[in-house]
Design a protein around this nucleic acid. Sequence first.
DNA 1: ATACCTGCAAAAGCTTTGCACCTAC
DNA 2: GTAGGTGCAAAGCTTTTGCAGGTAT
Lengths: 133, 133
Amino acid sequence: MSAAPLRQTRQRVAVAETLAAAAGFSTAQQVHERLVARGERVALATVYRHLQALAESGLADVLRTPDGQVAYRCCAHGQRHHHHLVCRRCGHTVEVEFGTFESIVEELAARHGFAEVTHELELFGICPRCSAG
Amino acid sequence: MSAAPLRQTRQRVAVAETLAAAAGFSTAQQVHERLVARGERVALATVYRHLQALAESGLADVLRTPDGQVAYRCCAHGQRHHHHLVCRRCGHTVEVEFGTFESIVEELAARHGFAEVTHELELFGICPRCSAG
DNA sequence: ATACCTGCAAAAGCTTTGCACCTAC
DNA sequence: GTAGGTGCAAAGCTTTTGCAGGTAT
């Protein structure tokens, strides 16, 4: 019934470390590229599997890039739901929390009688660094 | 330089009508299905092309479903940016506008020095009708 | 007549899956 | 020793694209 225990493999560690080291969001492909560049040999399919696992266990955030890829980001904060401001150019990410917004969503869902409402807010822009360059 | 004039074809009308008739968001595949069911013969590729065109010209909203498909919805409101509360089960959609939110986003982007910020808020839940059933 | 549009089919991505082998426990 | 993990390759999906023929204007 409970989930099977996860094994500590070279690949699992490598994927988790690579994701953790990244500043913003990374796609499976990007994580794989970095691993290869680092000299680690990990199959792309394995990267996909680990990223999914990380997301499911709540250790990573998931979002979809505007062009449809799935991107993951190591999630330092525990349970706290938060949003992101992502630079379209360099991927630099600012983590954002604003209670005001959360409560607006709740109030809104209630007003329309919607249940089990999940919300995902994506903000894409150009960060100050890229604007300057 | 300017866009070529759009021709009034059977397919264009059929796709636009089908999208307009739908209550919530529709994917290209769904629109195509409905067309076929209605007896219209339109190629899937053509549906994709028209939906993209509708979105580009601002006549349709675009969003990505949680599983990665692109969904479109006929957009009655002109320029006004708005968001949606979408039923995960039946697709029933409520159009939502809340100025408070828009200003929060602007203030937030400014605070972090981000430029050209676009935002998309997706709310998925179970609508009252489906909850009752 | 001439752009533009359509259909078909193939290609292109990203992601998932099947299966035999491997390895942490 | 065994259950879970991995690699490889193939399949699955949605979406895009090339091209020859069709059609509004």
